[in-house]
Design a protein around this nucleic acid. Structure first.
Lengths: 198, 198
DNA sequence: GTTACCGGGTTAAAAAAGCAACCGGGTCAC
DNA sequence: GTGACCCGGTTGCTTTTTTAACCCGGTAAC
């Protein structure tokens, strides 16, 4: 997967990042609804149509970071080593995420990450759009698990589990505890939840 | 002269500066002939045709700084206060340049300015193109001075004087002396030369 | 109750930039 | 001497970006 490193691609990536960075820092500073698209475009030194060529909606300016994880669950299942059950692979992957303190797991106490999550969870339109992403993820995972209603159900349950685990972790950290401190509980919760899934 | 502050103009100016800065720093580091247009375009993160849309020739990458002074002599004459002779106005303007240690006067000991001048004077194609610029300047000055052969002659003499004065100043500084040290001689030389012009 | 503004989002046309391929002159190898 | 390269510079086509204008829903003023 050697992507083109031409001038065009490089500048596109830079513009994308410039817009996203400007948007998120403005949102964190003043709140989602207090910042207009025009403000962001001006801060990123880009015109409004250009901004919308990179991000379909205002919400996506925030959520593209989650979108990066789009289809991740499905990929984990598809790429699992032979002889490993799908749920086991997902379990391991989630635990790896906890160990690496990945933001998606909620187990990250970096101030900007915490602030970012609070922004998402406390802004209705963002939380709403985020669930849309989760639904797409769910569908992809279902396809990876196979045909039939059982696959669909399992996919829904897995993503529900991950969502609850992540929110629980984030809540503990938002209450002031450190990621390191929370880690054991997070692992225990995950182990229990995933074991129950089988 | 309120120039547009739109995005287009701003980015154009930035691209222009990026190309010029990349070019000059590469030229100073490795010499004019040792650096190719492709090197400069790559360093400025710009394509070759784009580079040539901003600068007509390789030489102009260096000389656009002189080009900024294009028509300056003519402007000084046109804008002189009433009752002041053209040569007097030019004389004063040159002396102001000396006092402000403007690079065009040669009386500037900043290392990159000195290196820049050496680059120009020791590279034949650059020195050649520079005289082209001087000729245009001369014509403009002649027009500002009025019609007829006398105006043309005087214009030629004024620019010749300025050129010699600047080169003399630069030579002294290239020999290791400081601009502050050379300043009195430079003023004396200028006063003598301009007085003789009348 | 319209009038007028503001915010998210779209459109069409024109400018700018990128890319690839080329030209013409020089130079070096063989 | 001819074939292969490099360099300065150009050309035509495509992609990207800007600009200004607009649509639509909400909301505040009068």
């Amino acid at each position: 997967m050697i992507e083109p490193t031409g001038l065009r691609a490089r500048k596109k990536a830079r513009t994308h990042d410039a817009i996203a960075d400007a948007a998120i820092s403005l949102f964190l500073a003043h709140g989602f609804d207090q910042v207009s698209i025009n403000d962001i475009a001006a801060a990123a030194e880009v015109s409004k149509p250009t901004l919308f060529r990179y991000f379909a909606t205002k919400e996506d300016l925030v959520l593209h970071r989650f979108a990066d994880h789009n289809g991740e669950a499905a990929r984990v299942v598809r790429d699992r080593p032979p002889g490993v059950a799908p749920v086991t692979a997902l379990h391991r992957h989630f635990r790896d995420g906890l160990d690496r303190h990945e933001p998606v797991t909620g187990l990250n106490d970096h101030p900007v990450v915490v602030a970012f999550h609070r922004l998402v969870f406390t802004t209705p339109s963002l939380a709403g759009r985020l669930t849309q992403y989760l639904l797409e993820d769910e569908e992809a995972l279902a396809d990876a698990l196979g045909p039939g209603i059982e696959a669909r159900l399992q996919a829904a349950q897995v993503l529900a589990v991950q969502r609850v685990l992540a929110r629980t972790n984030w809540q503990k950290i938002a209450d002031g505890r450190s990621a390191h401190d929370v880690h054991p509980e997070a692992v225990a919760d995950a182990d229990q939840a995933f074991t129950q899934l089988r």
